[in-house]
Design a protein around this nucleic acid. Structure first.
Lengths: 344, 344
DNA sequence: TCAGCGTGAGATAACGTTATCCCGCAAGCT
DNA sequence: AGCTTGCGGGATAACGTTATCTCACGCTGA
């Protein structure tokens, strides 16, 4: 690691930031008049306004948003507690856009899939007096938020519902998605289909596994040994894969219940990826450049994010409105891996 | 999209959030005493402290951080202006971790690769009086920050330097990375190597293209038609690819200058991906499950993020210290695509 | 000529914290 | 006993805004 120190001697020490009062002095007007100019109050004369503007640019003044928020009583910010800032996050992006359109800034924080961190992040948002929180819940109980909810904090859960407290939620249609995946595989001739997915203690893991079992039951396929939900770990995925793909009646097709599982399965299949049909739940950026292309059930992140902000704004406007759960449709994107025929 | 409305009638209207004064009244002490308890001031008696604590939990009081910040004069927050919140962002994650260890919260905002948005995001951070900003610069000129910098705002550029103003920076060793890629390909027998990368108006595009030219010149290879930097667009990548891989003396190996280009090249190569050797600059999450695995020059995001925060903290402590540029080493990760032999 | 009125701009009080100052009280010293 | 010392804890003034109130001024209309 190389360090290069510039020849110049750096900058002068930090001098205090100009306040509205400084601007007022500079322009020779009253404090309140500067405030009026900043807030574009039409009752201020054009001449005076331009003089104040000049003072503002001369001093490089920028209003202190914290003071504004404190005084106005509103923060113009929504918090977004997502599982991991390091990952690609289309929903966060959609939330960001929708929020900006609604005149709200987004304070994004990572929960790192940890219940404790989630709580820390959310409480930190509360201390910052955000106008609402979009959360991708991790913990199973969000009782610690009941006080805030009672005080009218708009809270919208995304992907999974909150636990223990009632809050608006935007969910994907997990059951329909599993159904699409199953039917696509069945359509291409598969009779023995396996499922590897998330722990059933997790909402989406539970919903998707249940939907899968229902599909198998409805189609008269074999259930034994075909369903493998569980805690995510490469070792478990590997074992599940072996269990499903070997034995007297191995599966010829697989459904994976989330991105992490899909990727781990692909990693394990390696060069055999073209030999077993596969549909993954949830799309990811590079699914189309794999060979064969990965067939996925894609969630509609754009709609999810927008809906979350819509719900949040609606609750802001009317804290007493009934709690609502919106289910967003999913879409099957065939790219090849789900259309592979069974070996004869 | 299905909407389900819960049977319960929602929540009561938003009642005002309890303040320190409410807690004081509840506990029957003075306002200042509550403040002392909240800040764990040891001069408060144990008995009184527990009474105040009880009042705090009874009322569900949480201090207003904006008021604290206003009063204390420090925000305990660093801003992170990254190119796109939707993308996977290992550096942001590292920044988040390092900042948290330093007792700082992170306010992440997306610049969407847009100069105007970048400025908006950064100014918004300034209005929130963040204690420093980590920026992945987009614009070529950051003059608009000169006032803030003069006022002592710690600013650390990541990946690319700022333009027009002097600021600390953490960069990857682009030249060394290109050198590693080139040598790896040369080692495996390639004599005609092509480069497709970013626009040379972008710092990294410029540095990497220059390093590539230097490599070719040093090794006595052919330069004509082998270097294709330019604005990112699928059409341009496609044209560059055709230019490099066809003609009388086609390249047998490629170096791609950034993730977007790498992925677009892979997309175009499709089933031919195994026929041309390829080393990509910058790693990405799924590079290892491609077939062949993608050989990459990986930047050390963890070190970059941590260094950025270190520089930021250092400048906070001493605003007059000389401006510093840290270059972080990169690493070649061979996964197969860069080790393919040329066709005979 | 003067009441009446709209209009632009200043004084002042909040918003929810923390820092400074100060005071009352019990213990220890002469 | 009188005085200092120490220490727990309360009043009050900031921090940088905005909202409310007030006021001075110039104009119209009878």
């Amino acid at each position: 690691m190389t360090e290069r120190v510039a020849a110049s001697s750096g900058r002068s020490g930090r001098r205090k930031r100009p306040t509205m009062l400084d601007v007022a002095r500079e322009a020779g007007v009253a404090l309140r008049t500067v405030s009026r100019v900043v807030n574009e109050d039409p009752t201020v004369g054009a001449h005076l306004a331009s003089r104040v503007q000049a003072a503002i640019t001369a001093l490089g003044y920028a209003p202190d948003e914290r003071a504004q928020q404190l005084r106005r009583g509103t923060s113009g910010t929504v918090g977004a507690a997502v599982r991991n800032l390091a990952d690609a996050h289309p929903v966060l992006s959609a939330v960001d856009h929708a929020a900006r359109e609604a005149g709200l800034a987004v304070l994004a924080m990572s929960t790192e899939d940890d219940e404790h961190r989630e709580r820390e992040a959310v409480m930190s948002m509360c201390r910052r007096r955000v106008d609402g929180i979009v959360i991708e819940p991790i913990g199973t109980s969000h009782d610690y938020l009941s006080g805030e909810l009672a005080a009218g904090l708009p809270l919208v859960a995304v992907d999974r519902p909150t636990g223990g407290v009632e809050a608006d939620a935007v969910l994907s249609d997990n059951a329909a998605g599993i159904g699409m995946a199953y039917r696509q595989l069945a359509l291409h001739g598969h009779r023995r289909i396996g499922y590897i997915g998330d722990d059933e203690r997790i909402f989406t893991g539970r919903e998707r596994a249940a939907a899968f079992r229902a599909c198998v039951a409805a189609s008269g396929g074999p259930l034994d040994g075909m369903t493998h939900p569980g805690v995510f770990s490469p070792a478990r995925i590997s074992a599940a894969l072996t269990a499903v793909l070997t034995g007297p009646a191995p599966a010829t097709a697989l459904i994976t219940g989330n991105v992490e599982t899909t990727i781990e399965v692909l990693r394990h299949l390696g060069a055999d990826a073209g030999r077993v049909a596969l549909v993954g739940f949830d799309d990811f950026p590079l699914a189309d450049i794999l060979r064969p292309g990965l067939t996925v059930v894609a969630q509609n992140s754009a709609v999810i994010g927008r809906t979350a902000i819509d719900l949040l704004v609606a609750r802001s406007a009317d804290p007493a409105r009934p709690v609502q759960t919106v289910t967003v449709p999913v879409e099957l994107i065939p790219r090849g891996s789900g259309e592979l025929p069974p070996p004869d």
